[in-house]
């Protein structure tokens, strides 16, 4: 333990009344889209928070605001008790060195011209991270360590991303994210582009890493059944708002909102079609019923 060790009582992230609007040109002139609408969120150290919702519900915007990749239009964002919503990039050193991200599509998130070894050790060469005391100095050693952690052969380091399968590429992206020993891992639909048979591998890997490296995890997905296996808490988003949140098992077992129930019912399950079930393939209503807290369209 060093003096720099964060106080366990201070939340890792805190969002207070965070809104974000985008201006874009549509067919009828400029349109204002509200991606986030007054979001309050607290992420505690060691928490494994799932953020679920349909496309366009604001999940990705929220994590981009938390990671200071996008400033909020209004509201406050704190990282370990310090405001980051109006901070300059120089003041974001702590955030940049402690938080790493894993994206959806490892085909576009890995530089095709770099070897796997260079990709994984690149964050270690970043000036923001070099200054941190616990960032591994010996890059070769750390590379070997993380390759082993994500169950890739040591000689993978000399190859290029295109030589690997989708699941292996996602493990490379994870190895890169954990190389600088972050405290927080943010995964944005990290298993959505993978084959179902490969998904279990990567989910098991997330679970193991969070346990062994004692990470705080923010896991974004449209699939509640997937989130249930890596998270202990969940926030359900719709139209830029958090409409329901709490311990995952509670929400999985008895969702309070119809929207959440629909999200759950939509997850495809193995079933045998019978003549009588042919007409009722799924019980999901055609359009989501509007919630009482729905913003007017």
């Amino acid at each position: 333990m060093t003096d720099d060790e964060p106080d366990p009582g201070v939340p890792v992230f805190e969002a207070r009344g965070v809104s974000r609007t985008f201006r874009r040109s549509g067919t009828r002139g400029r349109v204002l889209t509200t991606a986030l609408d007054g979001v309050d969120l607290t992420v505690r150290p060691g928490q494994r928070l799932g953020i679920v919702g349909e496309s366009g519900s604001g999940k990705s915007t929220l994590i981009r605001v938390l990671d200071a990749l996008l400033p909020p239009s209004s509201g406050e964002v704190l990282f370990r008790g310090r405001r980051i919503d109006n901070a300059s990039s120089r003041q974001l050193g702590d955030l940049r060195s402690s938080v790493q991200m894993v994206f959806q599509d490892p085909r576009s998130s890995l530089d095709p011209r770099m070897t796997v070894g260079d990709i994984i050790t690149e964050p270690l060469r970043s000036p923001l991270l070099r200054s941190r005391p616990d960032v591994p100095r010996n890059h070769g050693e750390r590379l070997a360590e993380v390759l082993e952690q994500v169950e890739l052969e040591a000689d993978a380091a000399g190859h290029y991303p295109h030589e690997f399968s989708g699941g292996e590429r996602q493990r490379i992206a994870i190895a890169r994210a954990i190389a600088p020993r972050p405290d927080v891992l943010i995964a944005d639909e990290a298993v959505s582009a993978l084959d179902v048979s490969v998904r279990a591998h990567v989910l098991n890997l997330f679970a193991d890493l969070v346990r062994s490296d004692r990470l705080t995890l923010i896991f974004v997905s449209h699939d509640l059944a997937v989130v249930r296996h890596v998270c202990d808490h969940v926030a359900v988003m719709r139209s830029g708002r958090i409409v329901e949140s709490g311990p995952i098992e509670q929400i999985y077992a008895s969702p309070a909102r119809e929207y959440t129930r629909n999200l759950l019912a939509s997850v495809p399950k193995l079933r045998v079609r019978t003549a009588s079930s042919r007409r009722t393939a799924t019980e999901v209503p055609d359009e989501m019923p509007p919630g009482p807290d729905d913003p007017p369209a």
């Binding site: 496309s55 449209h222 999200l263």
Partner: peptide
């Protein structure tokens, strides 16, 4: 390429339309 709720609706539509 669709999220779960849209997927469920499109699958049901496909089922009906094929029938």
């Amino acid at each position: 390429a669709l999220d779960v709720t849209v997927q469920a609706r499109v699958l049901r539509l496909l089922d009906e339309q094929l029938d």
